[in-house]
């Protein structure tokens, strides 16, 4: 336990020193501002693009547009940003040999995975929640309507999906020998889950439902109980994948 805590502190310091925390925060803050901004600008941009010859009727932007843009960013580019930044977290240390000293001096190998998982998830959560609050503030200021009653309900599934996806990123990083391998594995899993969604029957059980149904949850057209099976499957597979990475690192040659 003590060694895990030690490694967590090392990971936090590393993330600060190699700018990972800075980058993920800046990118997600930009996303947070971009949601309301795009919602507000889209009618103007369309008006300019279509010229002054004829006028198209555009409905006024509402808070729905703003949140839609936010969740689109979070669940697509946001996921890839997470993978790009953290895909080398284990493989980098293995290839540079920085783990050898610590492990031979008595650091249990599971501590490495546990600490990396916790730190990665914490950073991602911090970024997501910061950008959520920013987006919330602007949306409440620019679009004070009540078309999106359950704004918090869209965020929880996203955070739970992160539990699994951070585990996948760590597993990919443990499996591969360089950054790109880990990146590829995570992206393939994400695309595979998206493709699985094409089958209608699997929708309730597919973890990807947690990042595709956010808007209907926010608008209140769908109850959270509808995706409950997917939530349990996500949590369960997060645990399995997490345990798999621990087993893998135990066998890996450092």
């Amino acid at each position: 336990m003590k060694s895990t805590w030690f490694f967590i502190r090392k990971e936090l310091l590393e993330s600060w020193r190699n700018y990972h925390l800075l980058i993920i925060m800046i990118v997600f803050v930009i996303f947070g501002i971009e949601g309301p901004l795009m919602a507000k600008l889209t009618p103007d941009i369309l008006k300019m693009a279509s010229g002054s010859g004829f006028s198209i009727k555009m409905p006024d932007p509402t808070s729905i547009d703003s949140w839609q843009q936010y969740y689109k960013n979070m669940t697509q580019i946001g996921i890839y940003v997470l993978v790009v930044i953290f895909s080398g977290t284990v493989s980098g240390e293995v290839s540079q040999g920085t783990l050898v000293n610590l492990v031979t001096k008595g650091l249990p190998r599971y501590s490495v995975i546990v600490a990396k998982y916790i730190v990665t998830y914490l950073q991602w959560c911090l970024a997501i929640i910061t950008s959520f609050l920013i987006s919330w503030g602007y949306t409440a200021y620019y679009f004070p309507d009540n078309k999106t009653p359950n704004i918090w309900l869209g965020l929880w599934p996203l955070l739970i999906f992160g539990l699994m996806f951070v585990a996948i990123t760590i597993l990919g990083s443990t499996l591969s020998t360089n950054n790109y391998g880990g990146f590829l594995i995570s992206v393939i899993v994400f695309i595979g889950l998206t493709l699985l969604n094409l089958f209608k029957d699997s929708k309730r059980y597919n973890p990807i439902a947690l990042v595709t149904d956010n808007m209907s949850l926010v608008k209140g057209t769908e109850k959270i109980s509808h995706i409950m099976p997917a939530i349990w499957i996500t949590i369960f597979s997060a645990l399995v994948i997490f345990y798999l990475s621990i087993l893998l690192l135990r066998r890996k040659k450092l």
């Binding site: 501002i33 901004l37 507000k40 602007y138």
Partner: peptide, 10 residues
């Protein structure tokens, strides 16, 4: 209010 923080960040 939307552009100033965006520009500052970038």
């Amino acid at each position: 209010p939307l552009f100033i923080p965006l520009i500052l960040l970038e």
